[in-house]
């Protein structure tokens, strides 16, 4: 069945919807969907916010959209370079309102693993590692993560390793948006082309779905903004996201 709202667009659009007016918002390395989400929010929403990124950009106006989310082009149009130590220190002293952070596994408490699959000392898969999480997740006012697959190997009851714990506020997958409520991830909305049972079936932890509803479709401005950021579909193809979850190897 053809997808009306692609999983890729679902992720980027819903990440953008976490952006709030006038807040300091950050996107990091290895983080293409949040990079696109921040740029989408700049183009699609009427409010302004302070966009910082790992390339040192402060309210940048990049002349093109890079494949690498740490590409120096993301500092074009900046009036300052806010380098790595600056934005980490800003975060730990409480000045980062919204921070997008990666995760390989997420548990029901909103803790994340980016370190290993399997035992840390004898890993089945060595993942990228600590990165921003252990310092930013507990100190950012809100942290939001994403996965391009919604499955029980990613949304787990028990993490293989707790790389970071703390202020995770939201999780976006190709078919669902979770937000933290009373210390646990709760379903906020799900992709209108799947069912609540699909979401439950792909989620390894129990969650509260009270008040959850199908996610509102992209507005014309959100859709147009994403098209303008990815006119030839390169990002969409690279991300290779489907809302039909097959178990990957």
């Amino acid at each position: 069945m053809p997808e009306g709202w692609s999983g890729f667009s679902y992720i980027v659009t819903n990440l953008a919807r976490f952006v709030r007016p006038d807040e300091v918002t950050f996107s990091g390395v290895n983080s293409t969907p949040p990079m696109l989400a921040c740029l989408l929010a700049k183009r699609a929403y009427d409010f302004d916010f302070v966009y910082l990124n790992v390339a040192g950009g402060v309210q940048p106006r990049p002349s093109k959209i890079p494949l690498s989310s740490s590409d120096p082009v993301l500092a074009e149009g900046s009036t300052a370079i806010f380098a790595n130590e600056d934005f980490y220190d800003l975060c730990t002293r409480g000045g980062m309102d919204l921070c997008f952070l990666g995760a390989a596994q997420v548990d029901g408490l909103g803790r994340t693993n980016v370190s290993v699959i399997g035992d840390w000392r004898r890993p089945k898969v060595r993942l990228p590692g600590g990165g921003g999480g252990a310092v930013m997740l507990p100190t950012a006012r809100r942290a939001v993560t994403w996965r391009t697959e919604h499955s029980t190997r990613i949304l787990v009851e028990r993490l293989d390793f707790v790389t970071a714990a703390g202020g995770l506020h939201g999780v976006v997958t190709p078919i669902a948006v979770f937000v933290k409520r009373e210390g646990r991830l709760a379903l906020q909305s799900w992709h209108p082309e799947v069912s609540l049972d699909d979401v439950r079936g792909g989620t390894g932890f129990d969650f509260d779905a009270a008040g959850a509803a199908p996610t509102p479709l992209p507005t014309p401005r959100e859709a147009a903004a994403l098209r303008s950021l990815d006119p030839d579909g390169r990002f969409e193809r690279d991300a290779n996201v489907s809302i039909r979850q097959e178990s990957a190897p």
Partner: peptide, 9 residues
């Protein structure tokens, strides 16, 4: 260093 609370690291 700020943060780190709750991390297995």
């Amino acid at each position: 260093v700020g943060g780190v609370h709750g991390s297995d690291l």
